[in-house]
Amino acid sequence: MERIYARTETLQQDKVSGFCPGCMHGTVIKLIGEVMEELEIVDKTVSVEGVGCCGLLMDYTDYDTTTAPHGRACAVATGLKRANPETIVYTYQGDGDLAAIGLGETMSAANRGENFTVIFVNNGIYGMTGGQLAPTTLVGMKAATAPKGRDPKEHGYPMHMCEILGQLKAPVYLERCSCNTPQNVIKTKKAIKKAFRNQIDGKGFSMVEIVTSCPTNWGMDPLGALDFLEEKMLVEFPLGVYRDRTKEV
């Protein structure tokens, strides 16, 4: 019988997911692993995990992985990639890591056109620390540090990283995806593959933003969180390609 699907070998085979029910991190790290296998880059890839739930990446990967200080993944990746250009480097960062404490490193690496791949998991909240206000928290959405909900007068508005990085000239590829439906999971995988392919071809900075749910810190059950993601998150963060210069460079 032909085997048409198997668990990616890039993840530790004896590990069971410890992510919360309804969390999409497991899906995303599976997709990354599948892409690595399909592109045959498993033995030369390094992941740079951010801090927060993204920092749990190392619990599952069976390939080279390093840990950046909170927010500094793009700076660490710059050092790794520049000092050893043959390595395929990707960062794995959440919204607090990439868009709040690490905004400067993210913007500057994108502006330099660093030749690595950024996987940005945006769930609109700080996960691991327990649901505090994130730069991507929706207006009105409650958080542990915004008990009355995000108030633009006090907290400003959600930040749109694909659109912000889209103001820079250097980035090659910026796409926002989600993993809320099987169809969107397939699209996300295609985007991740393109972002890695760009790096292999030496084309420069690529980022895939993946809008995900955090049922635990949103205070919802997994299915309710999926509805919220579709009805609210994807309205604030529209899916689509925000930059694609892949054919030009």
Binding site: V48, T66, A68, P69, R72, A75, V76, A77, T78, G79, L80, K81, R82, A83, G104, E105, S108
Partner: peptide, 11 residues
């Protein structure tokens, strides 16, 4: 901050 982390990465 970025510089020391680049050196951390390169190291």
């Amino acid at each position: 901050i970025a510089s020391i982390n680049m050196v951390y990465g390169a190291g």
